[in-house]
Simulated scan of single mutants.
Amino acid sequence: MDEDRSEPAAPVVADDGLLLPGDLTSVGAYVDASLADSTRQAYARDLAAWATWCRSRSLPAELPADPLSVAAWLAAMADDGHSPRYVARRLSALNDAHRSRGLPPPGDSEGVRRTLTGIRRTAVRSGYLPRRARAVDTATVRALVEDLPDTLAGARDRCLILVGFALGLRASDLCGLRIEDVVPAGHGGLDVLLRYSKTDQEGAGETLALAEGVRETTCPVRAVRAWRAALAGQGVTAGPLFRSVGKGSPPRLGAAPLTTRSVDLVLRRAAERAGVSPEGLSPHSLRRGFATTAYAQGVPEKEISRTGRWRSLVVRSYDASSRWADPASGSLGL
């Protein structure tokens, strides 16, 4: 048998030293892991859109991108009726692709920056208002959950809506919750661990206080206990807290967590059943509703911002063990 005479891969020169091929094997994977899955997928679609636009004009789509071409791309999207937020996000994807390769991002170009500013100002002068989720109040949340069916899916949906509102959670936060991360605490409530979130991509984690409600049908703690009991009845005691429920008889539980799209569908189905207007309704309505309702009830801003993890509202440097001193989730009238 002939010997394998293939030459070893050449080392990569890095400054005055050498990087061996194996040294770079995991770099790409770790760079990918620096972004949330949803962000990485959105950016991939945005870069594909950039490449398609370039091909339609026989322009090179390779990086680094020509700033003049990028400015023309942004203008074309605005001319097609896309919102400034949509245009800015696509530019963010292109900027990130450049930064991850050590290239200057086109968004730093004065021409590109001014083009985006002009797009925003033109939209405002034309009467454009950014779409915002409608903030739901406690009465609306009661309506959403009180007519839910007494089924496995109904127990899940009740728990999801009440916990999302009581703690001001994002849809992605709800999808990330695990059964083992919700544990009994003092005051009859539950400690809820968020392992990671949009503002905690590195997973430092934060524990939130979920207090009991004043009404049995809308108490988030009772809703969690009922849903966990239903899960245990199906032999599920660990893993994603919120998961799919099949339509068969008996219904089968999925193993994977719900997606943010599924959270939106849960909310819209509940609204349709309760006769609640779907206008402006989205999972973020629960988060906005938490903040506005808690503020109206006189909850201190530092507690609202700490529970909702809004760093911009107040300084949150006090001891996290104080979360049960005056928990926002216990002041919503649920």
Rank of each mutant, 00 (worst) to 15 (best):
L91C: 04
V183N: 01
I179T: 12
R243G: 08
I304A: 00
L167K: 04
A44N: 07
V221M: 01
P149Q: 10
A9M: 12
A230P: 01
D191G: 01
L332G: 04
A325L: 14
A51M: 09
K247S: 13
A36K: 03
D181W: 06
A29I: 11
V13A: 14
R268Y: 09
G154S: 07
A328I: 05
G111N: 14
L19F: 02
R228A: 07
S92P: 10
G203T: 03
A88E: 10
R261A: 14
R195D: 01
R222G: 05
S69D: 15
A97D: 02
A255M: 09
R89P: 05
D200L: 03
D15Q: 13
A226F: 04
R195N: 03
S312A: 15
R120K: 13
Y196Q: 13
G280S: 05
S249L: 12
L103S: 07
A238H: 11
R228L: 08
T39V: 08
A51E: 09
G188C: 06
A155K: 08
R99P: 06
D108N: 12
T293W: 05
D173M: 04
A271S: 08
D79W: 07
R306N: 05
Y43W: 09
T237Q: 10
Y318Q: 12
T199F: 11
A48S: 12
R120C: 07
G168N: 05
A93C: 09
H98A: 09
R170N: 03
A171N: 03
T237D: 10
L313C: 03
R195E: 03
P8W: 12
R121P: 04
T199L: 09
R121E: 14
W53D: 04
R90M: 11
P250M: 04
A185V: 02
A29F: 07
F242W: 03
A97T: 04
T138P: 00
Y318F: 15
H284K: 10
